[in-house]
Amino acid sequence: MTNTNGHIMQIRGLKTYFPIRRGVFSRVRGWVRAVDDIDLDIPRGQTLGLVGESGCGKTTLGRTILRLIPATAGEVHFDGQSVFDADRRSLRNLRRQMQIIFQDPVGSLNPRMTVEAIVGEPLKVHRLARGRALRQKVADLLQRVGLSPRYLNRYPHEFSGGQRQRIGIARALALEPRLIVCDEPVSSLDVSIQAQILNLLADLQDQLGLSYLFIAHNLAVVEHFSAQVAVMYLGQIVERAWADELYRNPAHPYTRTLLSAIPLPDPHIRRDRLSVPDEISPAPPAGCPFYPRCPQSQDHCRVHRPSLQEISPGHFLACPLEK
């Protein structure tokens, strides 16, 4: 951890495995390697996009670095301070600085709490405000995310999806965090609303100097939003680059497939769609995780496990074909 200036969070060798338990005595019969040896840096004041298909472990990664899911191995440093080694007091302090926004605007708000109680809870937990000051602070937060303070006493079910997502953002902002994990914040919204929420997040980043880990399953959403993009496949990072470089020169076959899946706005233009088998079949234990689906796979991909190599400045690739 020599240089922490450019990065607000550094992830080294992170592993999150879930045990598969079977039988009467729930013996551990195997492990799901949701996050499998990942190194990643989140740039300060910027956005790192994390892209991959459902089940690739990106949500697990996002929750592990916030210590919501216990890590199996590895280290995460926030501003030079270890997240996993933090004791109660320093963890409490860390939590003020790292927050999360969820995908599901319905499930992320307690249906039995008013907007005031939901957005004000972090302030109460950290004893930052109470009584009228708390109410005023919550009203300010609502205004900040484009909601009227009139809504203070309403319940989540009285709002639409986009409005609920704004409430979730207001809650994440309450502690004035420096890093926000955005776990597919627009995936369940209508396209028109997606743009509004993305604009809101971008404005907030400019105004408050926030850093984002922006998780998505769609490269198009990440494209205009992220400074850097990391592509994740089966628990591993397969490619990482500056956003414009990744879109111009995608190097990994999986990244190319993801890019070719972005729909074009003009129906008369046809893009050559690259396709891979739908099913995620188990990768050979020694080889490349993408081997069974890769259109360019060769024999030596079966045995050679790739690691991230810098193929051009700032552009990292994990592909056995790259030598």
């Binding site: 963890l91 927050q99 999360i100 599901d104 992320s108 307690n110 309450a174 502690l175």
Partner: peptide
């Protein structure tokens, strides 16, 4: 496992 409980945990609620 709901998101609102995870959100509360993320804020450090006891």
């Amino acid at each position: 496992e709901t998101d609102y409980v995870q959100a509360a945990r993320a804020t450090g609620a006891p």
